[in-house]
């Protein structure tokens, strides 16, 4: 099952702190959406509002067209997968996964069968009789996923589900999450602060900062054509181009990614001195400083073989320059 989600002018204040400021977003049914931002940006608050654990100070949440105002978490077509998984330690995996079905009044035989199916989906059917403490971190994460999906939610909310895993396992679980999402077709809303994770799994990414939406779009757009300076910085390195070199407007800066700075290109950045360089396998990461009186720093990723000598002065060019708003 699946449903679309609409958030209409959502605001949330805690005392004088404004956690969310007039959020308008809509996600399609079956979409994998990632809420991305630094800690404290309001992404988890927004997820808790979707799940019904918080009611917003202002605004409307609609899931499948239905207004969720005053609807308790248990009555929402959402389930949440918590950051610490919140697996019940005194229950077996089967009982954990079957918990939601038991609450719906499903008989033991039927819910055990369904629980085993769900454990099968996440590749843990042989461990159904174990308890959570006997599992590794990655396995617990899968049980939590199975438990949340067992009740057939329309929308699955994931609160930094991979945050507790080490890097290698994390990358592996990303692919699994994506595969399972494709298989079940449920709308996934996934919170993370890891931009690589976001790009790897999202259909669309919402970039958030200080309780506002900075950007919303497919990963390619978010990375290559960010709308704001914050998004550009958060998604990777960005070089700011001095206003004189481009036709500048007020409150807009121009930026270029290091891989789009080179010895050829559309816009001349002028002569620059190579200060240091490091080898990164597929490219050289070079720190330049412009040789004019502005001494603007540039970071460039130069192809193997293009590396000038340190202290050499070479003409630098930029392509794919993007205009960035200074604020959202």
């Amino acid at each position: 099952m699946t449903a679309d989600v609409a958030l209409q002018s959502i605001s949330q204040s805690f005392g004088t702190f404004r956690a969310l400021d007039n959020i308008d977003l809509s996600f399609g049914a079956g979409e994998f959406v990632v809420l991305l931002g630094p800690s404290g940006c309001g992404k988890s608050t927004l997820l808790f509002i979707l799940g019904g654990f918080l009611s917003p100070s202002r605004g409307t949440v609609k899931i499948g067209g239905r207004d969720m105002d005053g609807v308790a978490p248990r009555n929402r077509p959402t389930t949440t997968m918590f950051q610490d998984y919140a697996l019940f330690p005194h229950m077996t995996l089967r009982d954990n996964v079957g918990f939601g079905l038991r609450m719906k009044g499903m008989g033991r035989a039927a819910r055990n069968a369904k629980a085993d199916d769900m454990l099968d989906l996440v590749g843990l059917c042989d461990k159904a009789g174990r308890k959570p403490h006997e599992l590794s971190g990655g396995q617990r994460q899968r049980v939590a996923l199975a438990r949340a999906l067992a009740v057939d939610p329309d929308v699955l909310l994931l609160d930094e589900p991979l945050g507790a895993l080490d890097l290698k396992l994390r990358r592996q679980m990303q692919d699994e999450l994506k595969t399972i999402q494709r298989k079940v077709g449920t709308t996934f809303v996934h919170v993370t602060h890891d931009q690589e994770e976001a790009m790897a799994i999202a259909d669309r990414i919402v970039v958030m900062n200080h309780g506002k939406v900075e950007d919303f779009g497919v990963p390619e757009d978010i990375y290559l054509r960010p709308k704001t300076l914050f998004t550009a910085n958060f998604m990777g390195d960005i070089n700011r181009i001095p206003a004189e070199l481009v036709s500048a407007q007020a409150r807009v800066v121009h930026g270029v990614r290091p891989e789009n700075v080179g010895l050829k290109g559309d816009i001349a950045l002028g002569p620059a001195r190579l200060e240091s360089a490091a080898f990164f396998g597929t490219y050289h990461r070079c720190h330049f400083r412009s040789a004019d009186d502005r001494s603007t720093p540039y970071v460039a990723h130069l192809a193997l073989g293009d590396l000038p000598a340190v202290d050499a002065i070479v003409p630098l060019f930029a392509s794919h320059v993007v205009a960035l708003r200074e604020t959202a």
């Binding site: 799940g51 978490p73 959402t78 019940f88 918990f99 438990r147």
Partner: peptide, 26 residues
Amino acid sequence: SPNYARAAADLGASGWQTLRLVILPL
């Protein structure tokens, strides 16, 4: 973790069920 009670409520447990099946055993 407050998430135990949240998870139980999210999966459809009433307040009493959450208390009896999750919090009390914990």
